[in-house]
C-alpha cells in the first residue's frame, strides 16, 4: 500500500482505506475495550512518540467546553490500532512521525523540537504543516479522527465522547421523524 493511502482524511463521502485486517483480528481487539490504565505500557509507540501524539492530537481536537482527543484516549487508540488492525501500517506511520519531526524542527531558528515550543508556537507550526505538508498533516489528522469516532471497542472514543460531539447515538432502531425537515410527514 502506498504511504499516501494510509489513513486518508475522513472528510470524503467514504471512510478511507485503513489497511487490511481480518474480521477475526477485529473481533479480537474488542477484548481490549476502553479504559486502559493510564500507567499501562504502550504496545507499539515509544514513550516519546506517545508524548508527541498526546500534544498533537490535543491541538487537533482540544479540550475546551467539551472533552477532546485526550479524554477520548485517542493516543491509546493509535497505539493499540498500530499493534492490531493497522499492523501493516506501522512503518508508514513511523515515517509520518519522522516527517513531522523533521518539518517542525525548522519552525524555530534554534531548531527546537516540537514539544519544546510554546503552545501557541505549536499551533502555528501545525498550521504551517497543514499548508506546506498536507499529506503528513492529513495522515495525523486522519488517525486522530479515527480514534475519536471509531467504535469504542477499539480503545478510542472513550465514553462515546466522539459520538456525543457529532450527535450520533448508537441506538439500534429509530422511528420518524429522523430530522427537522421530515417532522409532520410521519
Amino acid at each position: 500500500m502506498q504511504r499516501r493511502d494510509f489513513v486518508q482524511s475522513m472528510a470524503g463521502g467514504l471512510a478511507g482505506a485503513l489497511g487490511a485486517a481480518s474480521w477475526s483480528q477485529l473481533r479480537a481487539v474488542s477484548a481490549y475495550a476502553a479504559g486502559v490504565a493510564e500507567s499501562a505500557p504502550y504496545e507499539c509507540l515509544t514513550a516519546e512518540q506517545a508524548k508527541l501524539l498526546d500534544v498533537v492530537t490535543a491541538h487537533l481536537i482540544p479540550t475546551d467546553d467539551t472533552p477532546g482527543a485526550r479524554e477520548a484516549k485517542v493516543v491509546r487508540f493509535i497505539d493499540h490500532a498500530l499493534a492490531t488492525i493497522f499492523k501493516d501500517n506501522q512503518k508508514d506511520f513511523a515515517k509520518t512521525l519522522a516527517d513531522f519531526t523533521e518539518f517542525t524542527s525548522h519552525y524555530r531558528p534554534d531548531g527546537a523540537a516540537f514539544l519544546a515550543l510554546t503552545p501557541n508556537e505549536q499551533i502555528d507550526a501545525l498550521g504551517e504543516l497543514e499548508r506546506l505538508e498536507p499529506d503528513v498533516f492529513r495522515d495525523l489528522r486522519g488517525i486522530t479522527m479515527t480514534g475519536m469516532f471509531a467504535h469504542p471497542e477499539h480503545g478510542g472514543n472513550f465514553g462515546k465522547i466522539g459520538w456525543k460531539l457529532i450527535g450520533y447515538e448508537d441506538r439500534y432502531s429509530w422511528a420518524p421523524p429522523f430530522g427537522y425537515y421530515d417532522r409532520g410527514r410521519e
Binding site: 472528510a11 463521502g13 487537533l60 479522527m145 475519536m148 469516532f149 460531539l165 450527535g167
Partner: peptide, 24 residues
C-alpha cells in the same frame, strides 16, 4: 456515517476548537 465524524467543509477550519464547534 460515524467514522466520518471528522468531516470538514471547504473554506472552514479543519481542526481545533473552531472545527469542533462545527463538527456536529
Amino acid at each position: 456515517t460515524p467514522l466520518n465524524g471528522g468531516a470538514t467543509w471547504p473554506g472552514e477550519p479543519t481542526w481545533g476548537s473552531a472545527w469542533k464547534k462545527r463538527a456536529r
